[in-house]
Nucleic acid binder design. Structure first.
Lengths: 103, 103
DNA sequence: ATGATAGGCAAGTAACCACTTGCTTGTCGA
DNA sequence: TCGACAAGCAAGTGGTTACTTGCCTATCAT
């Protein structure tokens, strides 16, 4: 459906959200507060907790982030699977060899 | 640079622009008017010529569309190379298995 | 229980973006 | 040269969105 791609690309459109994805790529399973502090420490992003929370909601609706709750903690895990949708939609020019296979 | 990715993802954020990319995937080297008529015919998109022109400008600044001028015609060619940037930034889970999740 | 910690909900605001409208430039055929 | 066609430029507008502010809920340690 179009709606899925719509959420996906809209989620990727914001630089802060992309930075969050970077952060989760490096360390998956972070809590909201952990993401907040790392964004401000490592990326010098002065951003409120609520803003990050809203960004995470957008990423989750796009399927790029999955969450699991444990007690009062909520862990956020990265899921890059939806990105495959992009590569399948517009085929890349031949790079050097077949892709999707790590030798 | 961040600015390049910024233009790229912003360009992909709009559904009309993605449809234009689809159209150019199918037939590269179209003029502005050709793209307009095909958008309205094949995709039922009632959109003005200027709107398409602005979309093409965004796509071009993102490097997804390249143009060449011949007389009074300006042809638009698709270039999916910038999309490789996405796959490199967030590595996809292994495609061999049905569901990829690192244990 | 009480205070502290982790997170959620909702409304308001300022900036951004897609689209339109109107006019202008440049190129080709008659 | 004149008219028609392809495209460019610029300002204005309505809707979207990122962010803040303020308050509320839930879980845990003491």
């Amino acid at each position: 459906m179009v709606a899925v791609a719509d959420q996906l690309f809209k989620a990727l459109a914001d630089p802060t959200r992309r930075t969050i994805l970077d952060e989760l790529t490096e360390k998956s399973g972070q809590t909201l507060f952990e993401i907040c502090s790392r964004l401000s420490m490592r990326h010098r992003l002065g951003i409120s907790r609520q803003a990050v929370s809203q960004h995470l909601a957008v990423l989750e609706s796009a399927g790029l982030v999955e969450t699991r709750r444990e007690g009062r903690y909520k862990f956020h895990d990265l899921n890059t699977a939806p990105l495959r949708h992009i590569a399948e939609r517009w085929p890349l020019p031949d790079a050097s060899g077949p892709e999707g296979n790590t030798p």
